[in-house]
Simulated assay, not measured.
Amino acid sequence: MGISSAQCRAGRALIGWSQDQLAMASKVAKATIANFEAGKRAPYDRTLLDLQTALEAAGVEFIPKNGGGAGVRLKKD
């Protein structure tokens, strides 16, 4: 499952990260993140995985599209 730009923005918001913080944690250029979140371009699958992995390591859980739509939430402790 590749994450959407909305899920990326929402995931960052849940943990209070800036694009700079996500860029450092994922080793993805800030410009790539900004363009993805603005809907200007779709990153490579590997880049999406790097973003998802960094957000998950910080406590974000991605919810797949399952009738209610894709989303994000914080992982339970």
Rank of each mutant, 00 (worst) to 15 (best):
S5E: 15
A13R: 12
L22E: 00
C8E: 05
F62D: 01
A34F: 05
L51P: 01
K40M: 03
K27N: 13
L55A: 06
E61W: 07
Q7A: 12
P64E: 11
A34P: 01
G68H: 04
S26Q: 08
T53Y: 06
E61P: 10
R73N: 02
A10W: 14
I15M: 15
A13T: 15
I33P: 01
W17Y: 09
S4L: 04
G2H: 14
S26T: 08
K75Q: 15
A57D: 04
I63Q: 03
M1T: 14
K27M: 05
K76G: 13
D77Y: 10
R12T: 09
R41G: 07
K75C: 08
G71A: 07
A54R: 10
G11H: 13
R9L: 09
D45F: 08
A58W: 00
K27F: 09
A25K: 01
M1A: 15
S18W: 03
A13L: 12
E56K: 06
A70N: 05
Y44P: 00
A38T: 04
I63S: 02
K30G: 01
I3G: 07
K27G: 12
R41S: 11
K30I: 12
M1P: 09
G2D: 15
D50G: 05
I15L: 08
D45V: 07
L55E: 01
V72W: 01
G71Y: 05
A6F: 08
R46Y: 11
V60H: 00
A34L: 07
N35T: 06
I63C: 14
K30C: 07
G71H: 07
A13M: 13
N66T: 12
P64D: 13
T32E: 10
A58M: 03
I63L: 09
M1Y: 08
L14W: 05
A38N: 11
A23M: 15
T53L: 14
A38R: 10
I33G: 06
I63V: 15
N35R: 12
L74R: 07
Q19M: 14
K75H: 10
I63R: 03
E37N: 04
G68L: 12
Y44N: 14
G16K: 10
D45A: 09
Q21N: 12
K76V: 05
L14F: 07
G16A: 13
A57C: 08
G71C: 06
D77E: 11
Q19A: 12
D20V: 06
Q19T: 11
I15R: 12
V28S: 03
E56S: 13
Q21M: 13
A34G: 14
C8F: 10
A54Y: 01
A29R: 11
A10D: 15
A13E: 15
R12M: 11
K27R: 12
L49S: 10
W17Q: 01
G71K: 00
I33R: 04
C8G: 13
A29P: 03
S18G: 04
G39V: 03
N66Q: 10
Q7K: 13
K65F: 05
L51H: 05
I33A: 00
K27H: 13
E56H: 00
G39S: 07
